[in-house]
Amino acid sequence: MKFNQPSFTVDEALQKLMHFCAYRDRSQKEVEDKLDSMNMIPAAKEKIIIELMQENFLNEERFSRSFVRGKFRIKKWGRIKITQELKKRGISSPIIKLGLTEIKESEYRATLYELAEKKLEKLTEPNSFKKKGKLADHLLRKGYESSLVFDCANELID
């Protein structure tokens, strides 16, 4: 236990975490980490998490959906990368599947092609085989499925 850190009552911690969750959607793991950093005992942590869920400050499905929307629209991540990040945050597979329904298939493919075309403009590789490889690597790192990536690369570089 750290000595120079203030201690919180359950009510103070609850208020602090209500603000923490109201600022943006959080996963349960993020809330637990925050409670750990506040040196809360397990019984108090459980009580606070239950209260946050009952008051709808903490909602894993809502977190998953907003996370998916944000990472796809802003960072243009693919489903694979988004899924990995949600798993890292302790989100269960069924809730990840629900979150991924936020991505429309047509929008997903359009974004993939948009990323591919942008990357192609920057590639100076004369060899078309190597060029395809570099493009595919870029798109795979962004988290897109290999079948889609290779179809896209073949379509654009032929």
Rank of each mutant, 00 (worst) to 15 (best):
S7C: 10
S7L: 15
V10D: 12
D11F: 01
D11M: 09
E12T: 13
A13Y: 02
L14Y: 10
Q15W: 06
L17I: 10
M18H: 02
C21D: 06
Y23W: 14
R24D: 14
R24S: 13
D25R: 15
D25E: 12
R26C: 06
R26H: 05
S27C: 04
E30F: 04
V31I: 10
K34Y: 05
K34E: 14
L35R: 03
S37N: 12
M38W: 05
N39K: 10
M40F: 09
M40G: 02
P42V: 03
A43W: 07
A43H: 13
K45H: 01
K45A: 00
I48Q: 00
I48P: 01
I50W: 08
E51Y: 03
L52V: 04
F57C: 05
N59F: 04
N59S: 10
E60V: 09
R62M: 12
R62P: 07
S64I: 05
S64W: 03
S64V: 06
S64R: 09
R65T: 10
R65D: 13
S66P: 08
F67H: 02
F67D: 00
F67L: 03
V68G: 01
G70A: 08
G70Q: 05
I74D: 10
I74T: 11
K76R: 12
K76C: 03
G78R: 07
R79P: 05
R79E: 14
R79K: 15
I80M: 12
I80W: 07
I80Q: 15
I80R: 11
K81H: 09
I82R: 00
I82M: 01
T83F: 09
T83H: 12
T83N: 13
Q84F: 06
Q84S: 15
E85H: 03
E85G: 02
L86N: 02
L86I: 08
K87E: 08
K88P: 02
K88S: 08
R89L: 14
G90F: 01
G90E: 00
S92E: 15
S93I: 13
S93F: 15
P94R: 04
I95K: 15
K97E: 10
G99M: 04
L100Q: 04
E102G: 05
I103H: 11
I103S: 06
E105S: 14
S106G: 07
E107H: 01
Y108W: 04
Y108M: 03
A110P: 08
A110C: 04
T111Q: 10
L112N: 07
L112R: 11
Y113D: 06
E114M: 00
E117R: 15
K118G: 12
K118H: 10
K119L: 08
K119M: 06
K119I: 08
K122N: 08
